[in-house]
Design a protein around this nucleic acid. Structure first.
Lengths: 104, 104
DNA sequence: TTGACATGCAACCATTTGGTTGCCTATTAT
DNA sequence: ATAATAGGCAACCAAATGGTTGCATGTCAA
């Protein structure tokens, strides 16, 4: 879980996921296209995404194909975000109450 | 959005949010309790959470009360995670298809 | 077979990050 | 008044991060 959060913390990596979401199964060079980064930088980002299981790859000849794995993202939603949604209204009303009696 | 992702990337910060979720409106010292960190380290984490608008604070005498703001977390769920859930089944089946024909 | 193409590996670098220590200020209680 | 309590500020530090360059390897096409 921690690896996933860390992987998602970087905007370049999130945009790589966006690109795969738009067009799955791209090669490294395709993913580099139009980015203001060297290929090696992209390789490192992809390695981090792969380690977090957000991207799965396999080779096809001399190319490496990258596939988005949306499962960990889904798990963040289920296991983490939903927990805070439950308490949402309570938390906000509690905060409001406190803010209102601030000058007592 | 980027600030929120970055703030959530650290396990100590996520656990501070957990603590506030369990018991909202704690003081700095209460939040420090039982953590293997100095008060100043916790202060820094809380400042980052506050900058990302995940925590709201106000002072009550010499104490500073910390309140969880679940809204940004909810927005991550709505604006970011849901986008990837839509393509989930397609992405996985596409991946499976590729994996199966890997040895062609 | 030889050149071009796709990717991998490793060393290096600047900046950011997560933490520390030491001291200062403000508020409360005795 | 004064001591204890709650928190703030700043300098410093080691390690992690995000990036680079240079070179090596594996695969395809002419």
């Amino acid at each position: 879980m921690d690896e996933v959060f860390k992987a998602l913390a970087d905007a370049s990596r999130r945009s790589l996921l966006d690109r795969l979401h738009a067009h799955n199964g791209q090669t490294l060079n395709e993913l580099c296209d139009g980015l203001a980064m060297t290929r090696q930088a992209v390789t490192k980002h992809l390695a981090i995404l792969e380690a977090a299981n957000l991207v799965t790859t396999f080779r096809k000849g001399r190319e490496k194909l990258h596939y988005l794995n949306p499962v960990p993202i889904h798990q963040i939603g289920e296991r983490w975000i939903k927990k805070f949604e439950r308490g949402k209204l309570t938390a906000l009303s509690e905060l409001k109450r406190q803010l209102e009696k601030r000058d007592e």
